[in-house]
Design a protein around this nucleic acid. Structure first.
Lengths: 335, 335
DNA sequence: TTGAAAGCGATACCAA
DNA sequence: TTGGTATCGCTTTCAA
């Protein structure tokens, strides 16, 4: 609770020197610095972030905007971001959109613009032109993780080619009756992600000369329960069934696997399933998937922002994060 | 980017009035308030949090300390906290311990003490006496979610009775050969949680006159992979096998279910499994479990802190959150 | 109801 | 290497 003045008094130097000493700035004698440090420790002094933020213009905090915090991908990115921020002694302000459209405006209007942060990292969001303009006038370094955004650099995988590879894996096993469990257009989220994955699917099918059945392209909302229900409805339908499913995310793939079980179908004998992510549970489900590394993506994005805050040249180009096919036991040739 | 002075100038009133008008304080004429609001909107003025924090002593931010962000329980609590904070226009500063002991000190020393927050909410943490003292001198309202902490009020379930009920469910089905998959003493985390659950297990067994086999009480680290491995090791051992498992969390229960599959055992015919949580995936796994509501717990805790920040009397007692047995298909009488 | 002015607690420039 | 001091942008008495 001690202020800088008390430390100055205890040390017999000015507050200016205390400030310099504690922040590790040059031009402070070792002796003085040591004395100041000792006094600060004893008095339990820590600079008030409001005061130093006001005086210096830097908050030493990074804003992170997430659509929600309870999806595997987001949690992994958050851990990656956090790891970098810790190293730089930056704090993280978490802006959770929580699904509501109205709150999104609140975040932009009240919180982000309050200059509580020095930089902004957004997850899987799309921005309206107005929002992008606000960000621009703020003058903060900004970056997006997960999904390309027009006018902003981003860190993420190549959605289309990843989906292409996943679909091709099924095709190369001999499947032609392939369904796609995709993401819906969740409001405010980055629609480029599900769209890119759908494109990759369509491209792979077309290149293999396979016709896509529209009724086999169904929305799974990026969630297990929704996907399970959607897949169950598909399997309920009379007529031919798909022999394989390309799910746009592992969580949706889990839903497909469970739906197969609901219908007494075995995976992979009766139904092959492939996903995207390499979720923590993917190995448990024996899921074949396109592995990506969201932790690394978050860390990379945070590092880019921190570097720029440190004076580095802004990098304009986006970063493409690697993916790899991990074959497990959920895919096999059709019987 | 406009400052309060510009709004004042544009409106023809003083900065004091602008401040009052924008914050909804009384004693401002409707006409003036409207004019100020309009000018602020047009100029895109939003008060700087550093400046108002410095002047008022309130940051309008709540600190939330989490052991990690990638565990189901934590994400749910976070969503609950966030929902309340949004309603109160509070921002969330997320302090992620990320498992490292050293960073924990950093959080306490540098971040929390920097007065960046008005209150502190901690998840499943235990505090050292020194840490508790620091918190006390800070003078912030503080609360814990998930696990009782000596000297601090908390919001959470009754660990012991919950575990007791879960174990009793297995016993009532006729099981006597029951294993317990528990949490390990993760460093810095609240050890009262796994300990309470173990106690409940032991009590239920004792009350039923069943002797607990120490070699059937194994650690699962609150994670699926660890639990799967631990359970596999248990099942690998020669001699009798348990007919049921009480897992201290759903994620550990999932691990047990997968391990059963690894050994060709059917659930529930060969092995009954019960967990605690009602994880999003519990229904998918058909898991019988003790359901709790972490979202609600987080919201409740946040509300308590917000109320106190708003001037309410501090509540000293802890809040016990309800649980309920949800029977699905993972438990049945032994064969 | 409104305004004037004194802080809030640091930082950063300019001198010494 | 150090100190003095203006300054950051807002809030909050105290008067008017």
């Amino acid at each position: 609770m001690a202020g800088i003045e008390e430390v100055a008094r205890a040390t017999g130097v000015s507050t200016a020197t205390v400030s310099r000493a504690l922040r590790g700035l040059p031009n402070v004698s070792d002796k003085t610095r040591a004395a100041v440090r000792r006094a600060a420790d004893e008095l339990g002094y820590v600079a008030s972030s409001s005061a130093s933020g006001l005086a210096s213009g830097r908050t030493l905090a990074m804003g992170v905007v997430v659509p929600s915090v309870s999806r595997w991908f987001y949690t992994q990115v958050l851990e990656g971001v956090d790891a970098e921020l810790r190293g730089a002694s930056y704090d993280m302000i978490l802006f959770n959109l929580g699904g509501h459209r109205g709150d999104r405006e609140r975040v932009f209007h009240r919180s982000i613009l309050r200059k509580r942060t020095d930089a902004l990292l957004a997850l899987c969001l799309d921005f309206t032109p107005a929002e992008r303009e606000q960000l621009a006038t703020l003058g903060h370094p900004t970056i997006v993780v997960g999904g390309p955004v027009k006018g902003l650099r981003s860190v993420g995988i190549d959605e289309t080619s990843t989906a292409y590879t996943a679909t091709s894996h099924l095709i190369s096993l001999g499947h032609t009756d392939i369904a796609h469990l995709g993401g819906e257009d969740e409001e405010g989220l980055n629609s480029q992600v599900p769209i890119g994955r759908l494109h990759g699917f369509n491209d792979a099918m077309r290149d293999a000369g396979i016709v896509v059945r529209p009724e086999w392209v169904i929305p799974g909302g990026f969630s297990l329960p929704e996907s399970r229900a959607a897949m169950n409805r598909l399997l309920d339908r009379p007529g031919p069934r798909p022999t394989a499913v390309f799910a746009g995310s592992d969580e949706m793939a889990f839903g497909a696997i469970l739906a197969a079980g609901d219908h007494g179908l075995r995976v992979p004998e009766d139904l092959s399933v492939i996903g995207i992510d390499d979720h923590d549970y993917a190995a448990g489900f024996g899921l074949t998937t396109m592995a990506q590394d969201p932790f690394e993506q978050g860390a990379t994005a945070a590092r880019i922002l921190l570097d720029e805050l440190g004076g580095a040249e802004p990098r304009v180009s986006s970063v493409s994060s690697p993916v790899s096919l991990v074959v497990r036991s959920s895919t096999a040739p059709p019987r």
